[in-house]
């Protein structure tokens, strides 16, 4: 029983990791006033880039950072469209969601001899697990804590982003830009600069989220790897009221439902596995319907500003 709980909690942390990065990215972009539904596409390109770089350089850390930069590049595209050219944020985001996987598949064919997936990393070339071998294998604590380094970094980043948002000058200004850009401008804040910065960093985080999937949770990139996780992260961010710490709990909740799904998948007949794996997605819908009315988005979200 204790082992089962450990298994579910461990799975929760594992599946929450990519959501955490991506949802934090979403929170950064949206607190600056730019809607980012392109998270999915940014995750995809990040996942592909990380897997590819890790494979060729045989170093997961470089791959991880590279995944972030790939996401940031798509973030830049989104920023140019939304901030400079005043594109509708949602439309631009949808375009990003086609662009990300498109580029990823194209490059995969190019680098890996026509296949649509990257080569599988050797186990010792994946993200390391800092607590590997500290606890007895498959013991309660081993199941929970023996996670990839990316998980611990994600949790750490939650508090970093929280600190930046609420305790620093950059954070205050960022939120002011998302709340009332005209007013921010009258006190001399450079709205366009902040929005560019936020959307690019948002892409970087989403890229890290994709990386944490392709070089840690699994060991290569293939087409349906991301399959909606960018959107779940977006839902988690909304459920988390656009704030880092509540967003973390939302991500953990989605991770938990994934843990339940995986656990049930092992104990119930195979005919039901598809139904069970729908749990996280169904939960997304339920949560959005029940809670989103009560949360408050940044006022200027999706709006445009004159400079």
């Amino acid at each position: 029983m204790l082992i089962d709980i450990g298994f579910i909690l461990g799975t929760m942390f594992m599946y929450a990791t990519p959501l955490l990065y991506t949802a934090l990215g979403g929170a950064i972009s949206e607190n600056s006033g730019v809607v980012n539904i392109g998270l999915e596409g940014m995750m995809t390109i990040g996942a592909f880039s990380a897997a590819t770089t890790s494979y060729f350089l045989q170093n997961p850390w470089i791959g991880f950072i590279f995944g972030g930069f790939a996401g940031a590049l798509l973030g830049l595209v989104h920023a140019v469209a939304c901030v400079s050219y005043r594109a509708d944020n949602v439309v631009s985001g949808i375009a990003i969601n086609f662009l990300g996987p498109g580029i990823a598949l194209f490059l995969a064919r190019h680098f890996f001899g026509g296949t649509t997936h990257t080569k599988i990393l050797d186990l010792d070339k994946k993200m390391p697990r800092p607590f590997d071998g500290v606890f007895e294998q498959n013991s309660f604590f081993d199941l929970i804590l023996n996670q990839y380094a990316t998980m611990f970094i994600a949790l750490f980043l939650v508090f970093v982003v929280h600190f930046v948002f609420y305790y620093t000058r950059v954070g205050l200004r960022l939120r002011s830009v998302g709340e009332k850009p005209t007013a921010a401008r009258t006190v001399g804040i450079r709205v366009v600069l902040y929005r560019y910065g936020a959307v690019i960093v948002s892409g970087f985080f989403a890229g890290l989220g994709g990386s944490s999937l392709s070089i840690a949770i699994v060991s290569h990139f293939w087409h349906p790897l991301i399959s909606g996780q960018g959107f779940i992260a977006l839902a988690a961010m909304i459920f988390g009221k656009w704030k880092p710490i509540p967003t973390m709990f939302a991500c953990l909740m989605f991770g938990f439902s994934q843990g339940i799904a995986v656990f049930l998948g092992r104990v119930i007949p195979a005919t039901y596995t598809e139904l069970v794996s729908m749990i996280p997605y169904a939960l997304t819908l339920i949560v959005l319907v029940l809670f989103v009315r009560r949360s408050r988005a940044p006022s200027a979200l999706g709006g445009q500003v004159d400079e």
Partner: peptide, 9 residues
Amino acid sequence: QHFMLFEPF
């Protein structure tokens, strides 16, 4: 005339 204040601040 229209205040330039930030409600959540």
